[in-house]
């Protein structure tokens, strides 16, 4: 196992985070704060509680998930896309480091950053609304699992993309709609029955539901199903990455 190699990639990626701290950490925190001001305090104060949770508190887990999904994907995809774009990937390819170790380095750093952002948003949210966390261990488990899974997904996008436009298109056109329609701002039980069924095909529903359960003990779908679906998505990403490295898809001629 090339631990020094993993560490080198991890530290390199984290250094990029600190270097671009405004863009990396400050901007998601700012935009989430705006959500809390608008939906949590201003509009939320006029809304009824959902499942016994005030609306401001209800959207906290969903907003954290929204940020984690977009940040994990954009970080991990950018992290591997840039070396491909500039050509510096030659060094990683020529190094005595395996595919698994390379992924641990890049995805580990992207997931770490997401977890940091998630934690900061959680603390920021506490300044706007009052909430408690019923199952802190599960909360951390969902946070970590989601960060890792979507960083893996971002890594795949970064490998697949061969232009900056493609790099943006998946997060923008697919992930953001899924996140908004995945119950970040409402319980899917509030939807008409037909749309409830449709919503169950949206993987984000399971993430948000499981995460919200860890806060308030209430969920749209069973927590076991949430966990299972997250793991299934993670395994799909791992399988895709395994295939990418086996075939050299888009990284090795």
């Amino acid at each position: 196992m090339n631990f020094y190699g993993i560490k080198a990639i991890y530290l390199f990626e984290m250094a990029r985070t600190w270097r671009t701290i405004m863009q990396s950490i400050a901007s998601p925190v700012l935009s989430t704060s705006l959500y809390f001001i608008v939906f949590g305090s201003a509009i939320g104060s006029r809304m009824a509680s959902i499942d016994g949770v005030s609306y401001g508190a209800f959207i906290v887990p969903g907003l954290i998930m929204l940020s984690i999904l977009t940040e994990s994907i954009s970080n991990a995809s950018f992290g591997i896309y840039m070396p491909k774009f500039t050509g510096t990937i030659y060094e990683v390819l020529s190094a005595p480091i395996s595919a698994v170790e390379t992924v641990i380095g890049y995805v580990g750093a992207a997931a770490t950053k997401s977890i940091i952002i998630g934690t900061i948003i959680l603390i920021t949210a506490r300044l706007f609304v009052d909430f408690s966390i019923a199952h802190p261990v599960w909360m951390i488990a969902f946070l970590v699992l989601t960060s890792v899974t979507f960083s893996l997904f971002g890594f795949i996008i970064g490998i697949w993309a061969d232009s900056f436009q493609k790099l943006q298109i998946v997060p923008l056109m697919i992930v953001t709609p899924l996140a908004f329609l995945g119950g970040s701002f409402y319980s899917i039980n509030m939807l008409p029955p037909f749309w409830q069924t449709i919503a169950l095909f949206n993987p984000v529903v399971y993430l948000v539901s499981g995460f919200r359960w860890s806060f308030y003990g209430v969920a749209d779908v069973g927590v076991g199903i949430s966990l299972g679906m997250t793991l299934v998505f993670m395994l799909l990403c791992l399988a895709a990455i395994g295939w990418i490295f086996r075939t050299g898809y888009k990284i090795k001629a």
Partner: peptide, 20 residues
């Protein structure tokens, strides 16, 4: 092909680590 925003020291340290 270099990492434009890295310092010289950081980039050689990275290379050494990458090679284990």
């Amino acid at each position: 092909t270099t990492d434009a925003f890295e310092s010289v020291w950081a980039t050689v340290t990275f290379s050494r680590g990458l090679f284990g």
